[in-house]
């Protein structure tokens, strides 16, 4: 594994200038596209459109600016493995939180009121109009 003889710039892949410029231009175009996409309403898919564009942009950066396409394949495994664990972490937490969230909301409505919201009420409005019970500092409060 360490038997390769090294010649000058044989240590790593040199990225051609043309590729670098093209990737940069693609990234700029995609940034414009992602801003432009906010002019259109895709309904519930807005987030997915924005994320898809971001993923494409990030992939371009990783593959070309970070040379991953020309790099040791194990580095790709490391990177992709990391993303798998990130999705695992976010995915399972997200699955859980949407399940118990209604309990959380009830808890906050019943017992706990955000202190700053309370202050706002003092300044701006009355409780009756907001339809909220008078805020007492909950036992979990700070």
């Amino acid at each position: 594994m360490s038997t390769e003889t090294h010649e000058s710039h044989g240590v790593a892949h040199v990225m051609p200038m043309k590729v670098l410029i093209n990737i940069f231009l693609a990234l700029v175009v995609l940034t414009v596209v992602t801003v432009g996409a906010t002019l259109f309403d895709f309904g519930p898919y807005n987030l997915y459109v924005a994320m898809a564009i971001a993923v494409v942009k990030a992939s371009l950066v990783v593959l070309y600016f970070m040379h991953l396409r020309y790099d040791n394949p194990f580095n790709s495994i490391v990177f992709v493995g990391c993303l798998v664990f990130v999705s695992l972490f976010i995915g399972l937490s997200l699955t859980d939180t949407t399940q118990y969230q209604h309990k959380m909301n009830n808890l906050q409505a019943e017992k706990v009121a955000a202190p700053n919201v309370e202050k706002m009420h003092e300044g701006g409005g009355s409780h009756e109009e907001h339809g909220e019970p008078p805020a007492g500092k909950g036992s979990l409060g700070n």
Binding site: F89, L92, S93, D96, T97, Y100, M104, L107, Q108, V112, A113, A114, P115, N116, K137, G138, L140, G141, N142
Partner: peptide
């Protein structure tokens, strides 16, 4: 700073802390 991510008094989610911690 009192960012409230894990503090229900600010609308935060204490169970989320446990997810973070046990991960």
């Amino acid at each position: 700073l009192k960012v409230g991510i894990f503090n229900p008094a600010y609308g935060g989610d204490p169970v989320l802390f446990q997810h973070f911690f046990w991960f």
